[in-house]
Simulated assay, not measured.
Amino acid sequence: MAAQNRPVSPHLQIYRFMWTMALSITHRMTGMFLTIGTIFLVYWLVSIAAGEAAYATAQGLIVSWPGRLLLFAWTLAFYFHFCNGLRHLFWDAGQGLELSQARLSGYLAVVAAIILTVVTWVAAYLVDGGAL
Rank of each mutant, 00 (worst) to 15 (best):
V122M: 06
H88T: 00
I62Y: 00
P10S: 15
E52D: 06
Q95C: 10
L126V: 06
I14R: 15
L86S: 05
R28V: 03
V111T: 04
G96N: 09
A50S: 14
N5G: 12
I62L: 09
P7R: 00
I62W: 04
Q101G: 09
F40L: 01
M32L: 12
L45Y: 11
V127K: 03
G51F: 01
M18N: 13
A102E: 07
W65I: 12
A22E: 03
W74N: 09
M18F: 12
I36T: 05
L71M: 12
A3Q: 08
T20S: 09
L71R: 03
I25E: 05
S47F: 01
Q13T: 11
I14M: 12
A22V: 09
L23I: 07
L104I: 12
L86I: 10
G51H: 10
L23P: 05
S24G: 10
A58H: 11
H81S: 04
R68C: 02
D128C: 08
D92Q: 14
A2R: 15
R68M: 13
P66F: 01
S64G: 10
A2F: 07
G60L: 04
I14K: 15
I48W: 11
S9H: 14
G130F: 04
A53K: 10
W44F: 13
V127N: 02
F17G: 02
A113P: 06
A54P: 02
